[in-house]
């Protein structure tokens, strides 16, 4: 038997019965799981309020030439995590040879300071997955991007479940970047197939904004779908492409403040 004194009234509480007015606590259930909203209504409603922050998400480029786009999408998601801490990027040995290594000056549009990035290269997929698990459990890490060479066959159903478990208890955001789609099953919450897409131009014949053609191929919390999405590097937000070209005014955006 215990008592709580609230400012306006004395409420006598019995254990096992929550007082009226408080939402029922459902630890571990879907509703209690924290979400990472992407800021675009169409996407967030499909995802049930945003990306499940403590479940594994897979990102797969639609062919090797879209690896840069897929990595950019992963980094954009990682950069949106509000929790302070490092972003651990784990590359399996051959992945860097095939698709290059993260490059400091290129991180600027995603608002991720290069000093936040911890880059790992693991020769074996087993070591890469171990490093992912350890990093996910660390309090000083905001997001973990694991990049596996080829389809990443080593990360099957069991291993992806382990990653989910590692992230479940106040862990970082787990993202798995496979260079090719995996034929087998996986315990991920969502799987995104990413292509680079032509972005809104600047009206002067330039390439335009960073843009992706996203296909949500697997979604545990809602319907699948496909969207065109642009990255607004001024506000660091996703947004749907504008129908007409608009040149953004120049804005001073120091990434060091992030």
């Amino acid at each position: 038997m215990f008592y709580i004194r609230s400012p306006d009234e004395n409420t006598r509480m019995t254990p096992g019965k929550p007082p009226a007015g408080l939402p029922p606590c459902r630890l571990g259930s879907k509703a209690a799981a924290p979400r990472l909203p992407l800021g675009v209504a169409a996407l967030d409603s499909a995802l049930g309020g945003g990306l499940a922050a403590r479940r594994l998400h897979e990102i797969v480029p639609d062919g090797v030439f879209h690896l840069g786009a897929a990595a950019g999408f992963a980094l954009a998601l990682a950069g949106r995590v509000t929790r302070r801490g490092a972003i651990v990027w784990i590359q399996q040995g051959l992945a860097a040879l095939e698709g290059g290594a993260p490059y400091g000056p290129g991180l600027e549009p995603f608002g991720v300071a290069p000093s936040r990035l911890l880059i790992l290269s693991a020769a074996r997929a087993k070591d890469a997955l171990w490093a992912m698990e350890e990093s996910l459990r660390c309090r000083g890490v905001a997001a973990v991007i694991g990049e596996l060479a080829e389809a990443g066959e080593a990360a099957g159903l069991t291993e992806t479940r382990r990653l989910n478990l590692a992230a479940e208890e106040d862990g970082a955001l787990p993202l798995l970047l496979r260079q090719k789609p995996l034929a087998g099953a996986s315990a991920c919450a969502t799987r995104w197939i990413v292509r680079g897409a032509p972005g809104t131009g600047d009206g002067f014949g330039g390439i335009g904004r960073i843009a992706w053609a996203l296909a949500l191929e697997k979604n545990r919390d809602g319907p699948c779908g496909a969207w065109r999405m642009e990255w607004d590097h001024d506000t660091r937000n996703f947004r749907a492409p504008l129908p007409v070209a608009v040149a953004a005014p120049p804005v001073h955006r120091p990434y060091r403040a992030a």
């Binding site: 290059g100 993260p102 490059y103 972005g199 809104t200 600047d202 390439i207 335009g208 590097h233």
Partner: peptide
């Protein structure tokens, strides 16, 4: 540089 894209790539080949 006058670009909406990043001036430098995200991934660089060694």
């Amino acid at each position: 540089q006058d670009t909406l894209l990043a001036a430098r790539p995200l991934r660089l080949f060694a």
